[in-house]
Nucleic acid binder design. Structure first.
Lengths: 337, 337
DNA sequence: CTGAAAGCGCTTACAG
DNA sequence: CTGAAAGCGCTTACAG
């Protein structure tokens, strides 16, 4: 049979409540008692029953990870595992566990997070995406349930952590210009995603110093974040033959773009820069273009830290105060052998 | 206040036990009662408390995902998100949730899965890696706790799901031979990982038809599964200038290898083939080499299915029967424009 | 087909 | 510093 708190109590000659207090390291228990009880817990291989603890204490020490509606591109992007790793490491440091959300459409995903929240399975949520008019986001917002978004949704106050997209795309553009690029294209994605809009603005901000702006058809959106999309698009651009600088907003897309450039032997012709989830700096980078390290692991790590803060304040007065944090990014240059 | 089973019972004019039976769709409850109670659950926005259910029923409907000790290469490999997606989709279909294991070293990871198991937090585990002499594996094996391994550990009976590595590397080699390759190298990884050993054996099996075998120094191991490693290694091989066929056991490594070949303009010289977590078939593949689609999503999906079987048999007699399933892989040829 | 009652294994005021 | 007791919100034999 499984060892319960009663077994430990009996063996230690104390009450179950005392054992309970030892488990949570309650200050009112004497060190001597703690030591003794802990030894017995070890001897008996006692592990507290999570469900009982959670039921009695109304806290689960579990955070729900909200995934976007199914899309190949999301799962295939290095952002996902990297950010997950960051969240998990920090969660682990605070003895929190991660529960993944499930479901495919908006409806079933919403049902699942409702079940998690109302069913007291999770204490808070971390959204791995930021989309406007997202039903799940609307729900937690209305409910006042603790959550942190990775990314940003303009105009709605909420806790979030993000890259400084405006700044880095501005710096990216400055860099390309400095390298001699004078006709810059922005290879983007979905403009409903805030960070794309931000990066476009960043490029324009930089270009305005030279009395330039991106024309509407210098912005290549509506492409999925897949290498093949970048490859195909770049083949088109090469035919158009009017650009010399490329800000590519996703690393997979950038790989495809680079391949097309490489195959046409046009490395001299195009300056290119992208943004990556992590830095591969330790190794020789055979993709010879610079990138901003978005440090998605840090993004995840900080998201968890913020959520923890929010949770610890939950008892406090009903303040209207939100965290909106931007993490720094570093420009990485490929080492050439 | 939160709505409980009592509120629903009162409102419906039945006992809490009846509501409980409606929740779990117990056959002994009349359809009329079920309908009525369900309507009230909706009206009241009632969601059962997970912790109470789990405590009372001793079942959690949660599966623990065991991650390997931290390594960049693992998180960066497409295998991880792809397999996770497969597991999650199937879990979701059966109303199961996924809890991620945490911890960095063997010791803290072991502690965490002990807490999950003894604390009745999870009903079963899925290992996302297969390593010999793994303390976590030894633990669950000894404990007789339900689990499924993705991959294979030779010589120890356990439930597992894997690619047919012997067969696909044999077919891979046959293909390269048929394309004219006569000096084949195996670019591998860590031989403590069973699938590497299997694939080496597969290559040799194919080569034996032509009275060849891989010499020890035709096998390039001890490299991490990163593109940069493949790139560096291939630069060496190009200098050695003795191979014309390459079996590359990881897709990231293969990308690096391909880049090196491309940069030296040696596409005609080398036949190459690799293995990928998923197929990108819908799009033009700009990496012009064939690969086996390992279908990691299916791997995850099936791992979950097997675990579910194991769990449902848990009540039965103490049979010693294990599942060892191999999923089919398909050889994919890049579409050339 | 349904209900009353005990119990799952903890936590937490309250009292001393 | 510690204990007795009530309670967290369910499930499940048992009885009818």
């Amino acid at each position: 049979m499984t060892v319960t708190i009663k077994d430990v109590a009996k063996m230690a000659g104390v009450a179950p409540s005392t054992v309970s207090r030892v488990i949570s390291d309650h200050p009112s228990i004497s060190q001597a008692t703690k030591n003794r009880v802990r030894q017995i817990m070890k001897d008996l291989q006692y592990y507290p029953n999570f469900n009982a603890r959670q039921l009695a204490s109304k806290r689960s020490r579990i955070v729900g990870i909200v995934l976007p509606p199914d899309s190949d591109a999301f799962y295939q992007n290095p952002f996902f595992p990297t950010v997950l790793r960051g969240i998990n490491e920090t969660a682990s440091r605070y003895q929190y566990s991660l529960l993944l959300s499930t479901g495919e459409g908006d409806q079933s995903r919403l049902e699942h997070i409702k079940a998690m929240i109302y069913g007291k399975q999770v204490e808070g949520l971390i959204f791995l995406y930021a989309a406007e008019a997202d039903p799940l986001l609307s729900f937690v917002l209305e409910e006042g349930f603790p959550f942190v978004v990775i990314g940003n949704v303009a105009g709605i106050p909420m806790n979030s952590i993000d890259n400084d997209n405006l700044k880095i795309s501005q710096l990216a553009t400055d860099y390309l210009w400095q390298q001699g690029a004078r006709r810059i294209a922005f290879i983007g994605g979905d403009t409903r995603q805030q960070f794309i809009t931000q990066r476009i603005r960043g490029v324009n901000l930089a270009l305005s110093k030279h009395d330039q702006q991106l024309a509407e058809d210098d912005i290549y959106n509506q492409i999925p974040f897949l290498a093949s999309a970048g490859y195909e698009l770049m083949n088109q651009l090469i035919r158009k033959d009017c650009y010399d600088g490329l800000v590519v907003s996703d690393q997979l897309v950038a790989e495809g773009v680079y391949h097309a450039i490489l195959e046409h032997d046009l490395l001299e012709r195009y300056q290119m820069l992208t943004f990556k989830a992590y830095s591969d700096q330790h190794s020789v980078n055979y993709l010879h273009y610079p990138y901003f390290n978005l440090d998605s692991q840090k993004l995840g790590d900080q998201a968890m830290e913020i959520l923890l803060e929010v949770l610890s304040e939950a008892d406090g007065p009903d303040r209207k105060r939100y965290v909106y944090e931007l993490i720094p990014s570093e420009l990485v240059f490929p080492r050439t052998k």
